[in-house]
Design a protein around this nucleic acid. Structure first.
Length: 416
RNA sequence: GUGGGUGUAGCUCAGCUGGCAGAGCACCGGGUUGUGAUCCCGGUUGUCGCGGGUUCGACCCCCGUCACUCACCCCA
């Protein structure tokens, strides 16, 4: 074969359950008043540099950046929030009723080395609630992701929750943590990371590092009064919504804009990448990209990883609706009739197809079987002369002759 | 960017110390001149990733290369 999909990309193939997962994850949010929004897959490079944070790995080494013919620097979006907030600001959505509740789905791009559950073009479903600070809203947002996973039948998803503090309490904590980390025996790369973002070190997987972190100061113990009150209220909200969570005081996010409420959904059946989704509050993002103070909270869930989680739990995501009727014809007259019959079926809302390519009856019946249709309509020239079609129930083989004029009504009746 | 593994039919994979390229599934046809899902019979499908080397002879050994894959870093 001459070509294949570029490295780190994949094709969504029939039967993958992709649509059911992408839309299923957002279904609870839709019921909660989150409207659909779609923003461009590429944006001004500066939007991500300032929004996501220039020092993050995502921005510093994983972006697909290019220059267009007008010499503008553009970047394929590595995440969805910055673009959505940009759209909100650009169109003044925040001047209306608050919070602005939005949901979205689409491809994101990061130039990483692919591995299980990680692609260069990957898909996320996400929501954002923008415009106010209310711990009850935090709880709703988190609960909607939880419901999304549950509605797909997943039982192995765990919710990790913490608070990253805010500009009042985090700087002091950061200093304290930096001082602690500086006293440890770390390799050069890690020591560099201490200076860029010391919180990230808490997340290191290596045992040699984790052992030394046993006595590290933790953000939840250093929250200021406001952050503490907010965090406690979020916890209460989740409890009253019946959403179980695990405190994760060392949880860190890879994007700089997160503060206060921060969470991640993990699943143990995925391979090395256990996160199926994550999110948090980003009260400083709007200002970082040149907008007014505009708090917000949201999440993004990974479609591919959710599919992996479903697979590991032995759950087959629902497939597309499929056919109701498959028409099999014999003879030239019957073939012509079949084409119009299928047209009539479809107009009446009956999903139908017919056997194209003049194969034998046996082969056509085989095709009917494989189409997944509930009924086969078999028509030969001699049926047409008699003014009937044979309606066969493919589940049990029962077959009866139905007058041509009554065919569509009969099928509709049986479908009801 | 670093390290490991794997490349043989559409798919999943066998292939002995180096001696004719294989199986199952799928697909197509027949058994039934007008009936599927079961059963029986038959058939189609190959640059053994690619390039070089060793050899009388290479899917097999050697070198290179590409792709895929898993893991590290990081993240969904």
């Amino acid at each position: 074969m001459a070509f294949q999909a570029p490295k780190g990309t994949y094709d969504v193939l029939p039967g993958s359950g992709f649509l059911a997962v992408r839309d299923g994850l957002l279904a609870p949010a839709e019921l909660a008043g989150y409207s659909y929004i779609e923003s461009p897959v590429f944006e001004d490079t500066e939007l991500f540099a300032r929004g996501v944070g220039a020092s993050t790995d995502v921005v510093s080494k994983e972006m697909f950046t290019f220059t267009d013919r007008g010499d503008r620097s553009l970047t394929l979006r590595p995440e969805g929030t910055a673009g959505v907030v940009r759209a909100v600001l650009q169109h003044g959505l925040h001047h209306g009723q608050l919070p602005v509740k939005l949901r979205y789905a689409g491809p994101m791009f990061r130039a990483e080395r692919p591995q299980a559950g990680r692609f260069r073009q990957f898909q996320q479903s996400g929501i954002e609630a923008i415009g106010l600070v209310d711990p009850a809203l935090d709880a709703e947002v988190v609960a909607l992701a939880w419901e999304g996973f549950r509605s797909l039948g997943l039982t192995g998803v765990r919710l990790l929750l913490t608070s990253l503090g805010d500009p009042t309490c985090r700087p002091a904590y950061r200093e304290e943590l930096t001082a602690f980390l500086t006293g440890l025996d770390l390799d050069e790369a890690t020591r560099a990371r201490v200076l860029i973002n010391p919180l990230r070190v808490l997340d290191d997987k290596r045992e040699s590092v984790q052992k030394q972190l046993a006595g590290a100061p933790l953000m939840p113990d250093r929250l200021c009064a406001d952050c503490k009150a907010h965090h406690d209220a979020v916890i209460e909200g989740l409890q009253s919504l019946g959403v179980p969570f695990e405190p994760a005081p060392r949880l860190v996010r890879g994007l700089d804009y997160y503060m206060r409420t921060t969470f991640e959904f993990v699943h143990d059946g995925l391979g090395a990448q256990s996160a199926v989704g994550g999110g948090g509050r980003y009260d400083g993002l709007s200002e970082a990209i040149g907008g007014p103070h505009l708090p917000g909270i949201g999440w993004a869930l990974g479609i591919e990883r959710t599919l992996l989680a479903l697979e590991s739990e032995g759950i087959t995501p629902p497939s597309e609706k499929g056919l109701d009727v498959y028409v099999v014809s014999l003879g030239v007259m019957a073939k012509a009739w079949a084409v119009t019959a299928v047209g009539a079926f479809r107009k009446a809302g009956v999903a139908s197809d017919l056997a194209y390519g003049d194969r034998g009856l046996k082969g056509a019946m085989k095709a009917a079987d494989r189409s997944g249709a509930r009924w086969a309509v078999v028509v030969g020239d001699r049926d047409l002369e008699a003014g009937v079609a044979q309606l066969k129930d493919l589940r049990n083989g029962d077959q009866l002759a139905v007058p041509l004029a009554e065919l569509t009504p009969t099928v509709l009746e049986k479908l009801a």
